[in-house]
Write a protein that binds this DNA or RNA. Structure first.
Length: 286
DNA sequence: CACGAGACCTGTTCGC
DNA sequence: TGCGAACAGGTCTCGT
């Protein structure tokens, strides 16, 4: 489900709090419940309990699609994968279906009463939770953060030159660039007028620069719209109303009017405008 | 290295 | 209407 903009939105909500729920910052973990064993990747549950009880949420961050909750001397790392979501609810709220892990919290001044519950809800059970001393052990494989200053057109161009892969699967590789998923890959390629099957090393610097701009634009717009909410998963964002291609099969391209096409690239559902994104010469299968 | 298939999971939608 | 197949925003691992 969530890609960089959705994770960033969740992150920001927990930092700031919302009308319905307070900020997570300063809250203390006083109990944990694990309802689906494989959700906890590391360490084992007894070790997790020993280390996490009594720790406070001091800082909340994001790297790629990973959420980072910095506690006193450990970091709680969460990846939502396809269907994960985090809810901050009353500690005695009725249990919704698909809750996989619960963190019971109190306030500095609520003397040990279970006040709130951070619930990891994950229909498909792909999501994972880690508690580590140094998050780098989990994040070190990630490529550059696309909205950071280090991610320049020049860097993208060099990295594209260093590989000989089709653009779309390459954009989905988290070690190539962190945070892009199926929606934002399609949207970025359309805005850059690049076909998903184009090979990375064939791009000119100008094309790489267009792709760089498109990636940044699309991710920033996603964040500005609080992410995309499709189907029943993840609520709150409205970027889905501004998609140019994703899930718009047969509808007219907003730029040229041609019907959007659906194809499979690397086993992932892919959407393009056949007119704005001409296929590379070497990729005509028929 | 590049790439496809299969796993991991549950729920919804599609096609006959 | 009914029922199985296909599909869903992610990632890992294995085989060619």
């Amino acid at each position: 489900m969530p890609e960089l903009p959705e994770v960033e939105t969740i992150c920001e909500r927990f930092r700031q709090g919302t009308e319905e729920s307070p900020s997570l910052l300063g809250k203390r973990v006083i109990d944990v419940e694990l309802l689906w064993n494989r959700t906890l990747a590391e360490p084992g549950f007894p070790a997790l309990m020993r280390r996490i009880l009594g720790q406070r949420f001091n800082e909340i961050g994001r790297r790629g699609k990973y959420l980072l909750f910095h506690l006193n001397d450990h970091t709680l790392v969460i990846h939502l994968r396809m269907s994960g979501d985090l809810w901050l609810e009353a500690a005695d709220a009725e249990m919704a279906p698909h809750h996989r892990m619960l963190f019971y919290l109190d306030d500095p001044d609520s003397n040990g009463n279970k006040l709130l519950r951070l619930a990891f809800n994950d229909t498909r059970k792909f999501g994972r939770v880690w508690l580590v001393e140094d998050p780098q052990e989990i994040l070190s494989h990630l490529g550059p953060e696309p909205l950071s200053e280090e991610f320049t057109p020049q860097l993208l161009y060099e990295r594209l030159q260093g590989r000989r892969r089709q653009l779309k699967p390459l954009l989905l590789e988290q070690e190539f660039i962190a945070g892009i998923g199926n929606i934002y890959a399609d949207e970025a390629l359309h805005r850059a007028k690049l076909h998903p099957l184009v090979h990375s090393h064939t791009l000119s610097f100008e094309e790489a620069e267009q792709l760089w701009k498109s990636i940044r634009r699309v991710l920033k717009e996603g964040i500005r719209r609080s992410g995309a909410s499709i189907d029943w998963v993840y609520r709150g964002g409205d970027f889905q109303n501004y998609f140019q291609v994703y899930r718009r099969t047969d509808q007219p391209c907003h730029r040229c009017g041609a019907p959007i096409q659906h194809l499979k690239v690397g086993q992932r559902s892919t959407h393009i405008c056949p007119n704005c994104q001409p296929a590379p010469a070497d990729s005509e299968p028929n």
